[in-house]
């Protein structure tokens, strides 16, 4: 998966343009929410970031299965990148969520089902990256990381269902039940698109770097 330089530049331009548009919509276009006030604008960053945390775990899941089946190092590179970027977005989702929770709930953190299950995802992704380092040899590490990557995906539907399964204070399903005003929904969709393109760009870059790392390792062993 070696993407050409042109594609990368194109993705960069698209990502930058969408980001500027999304920020314009978040700060200028969208009306301020009635109850929560200006703080609610964090919503347009938190939802895309949390979505990418889960989507990245899904990519990790697919790449892990593909690696176990085919044993191609390119799939391992995708799995590694997805775990790493997924961890980044999970961290962002938790931190951004905290910034929103403090003014609204009065606490940075509460042991609420959706928050807890997201923290669990963060820990599993961390374990997925860590298990590579502790394996007896690198190829073993890749296989173990793939196994943990598959197990990590079990948590994603749990995060999705956590608001209905355990009934915490975190709202769930507002977006899908049509509880958003049209301008808010538009802003959210633009923001989602902007962050998703950014994610694709990050993945492409990280996978390229990882593939290069693998090539260098191979060359080192040849010597």
């Amino acid at each position: 998966m070696n993407t050409s330089h042109k594609t990368k530049l194109g993705l960069l331009a698209l990502s930058a343009a969408l980001m500027i548009w999304a920020h314009y919509m978040v700060f200028v276009y969208v009306p301020t929410e009635a109850v929560m006030g200006i703080v609610q604008r964090i919503f347009y960053v938190m939802v895309p970031v949390a979505w990418l945390a889960m989507f990245s775990t899904f990519v990790l899941f697919i790449a892990s299965i593909a690696y176990l089946k085919t044993r191609k190092s390119s799939w391992d590179a995708v799995a590694y990148s997805a775990a790493e970027i997924g961890l980044l977005f999970t961290t962002l989702a938790i931190v951004v969520g905290m910034l929103w929770a403090k003014p609204i709930w009065g606490v940075w953190w509460t042991w609420e089902p959706r928050l807890t299950t997201t923290l669990v995802l963060w820990l599993i992704l961390l374990a997925c990256l860590m298990v590579r380092k502790v394996a007896n040899d690198p190829s073993r590490g890749s296989i173990f990381a793939a196994v943990v990557g598959i197990v990590a995906f079990i948590d994603v539907p749990i995060i999705g269902m956590s608001t209905t399964l355990w009934r915490g204070i975190h709202p769930g399903g507002i977006i899908f039940e049509g509880g958003l005003a049209p301008p808010m929904l538009q802003t959210l969709l633009v923001s989602l698109a902007a962050f998703t393109v950014l994610y694709v760009l990050m993945m492409v870059l990280r996978v390229t770097v990882k593939n290069n790392e693998i090539t260098i390792e191979k060359l080192k062993t040849l010597r």
């Binding site: 299950t117 669990v120 820990l123 197990v151 079990i154």
Partner: peptide, 10 residues
């Protein structure tokens, strides 16, 4: 424990 505990949390 690092692998096992988070997964069995639910």
């Amino acid at each position: 424990p690092i692998l096992f505990l988070p997964v069995v949390v639910p």
